[in-house]
Amino acid sequence: MTTAPAKPTDPAIQKTLRTGWLLLAIALPLGVTLEALHGFKVQAYLASEMRREMWRLAHAHGTLLGILCLVFAAVADAHVPQVIRGRVAAFIRWGAVLMPLGFFLGGVLNSEGDPSLGILLVPVGALLLVVALVRVALAPRPR
């Protein structure tokens, strides 16, 4: 007989956990789709080096940042002070969504040499993640 795991009580952790799973649920099928496009040599995808690069990065970032969200949700209660937890969790969630989304949009309506303007979401997301990292690093440690 199995028992359901205890549900986290902190709403920030709950949201981050949900975001992580959702990111994985989107990024993994994206990877499968890209593999299929390669497999069947779909010209509309393979002929654009820029689009291939952008969508590869979208898949990789979506997957890894989804895992980051899950890891954060797992360790936040013990290692991230309550006072900053909500803000840091929000930064991580938004960063984790904006980066792969920016890469994906960068491969939509792109030219041969440059991604589309959707790529601008990437540095915004990256900045949010860096800020989250810095805030956690500078927060006082529980004794």
Partner: peptide, 18 residues
């Protein structure tokens, strides 16, 4: 699960094609 394949299909069908 359906979001990415649908978005990819839509872009390839309607977006810029080299």
């Amino acid at each position: 699960l359906a979001a990415a394949p649908l978005a990819v299909g839509l872009v390839l069908a309607l977006g810029h094609d080299v």
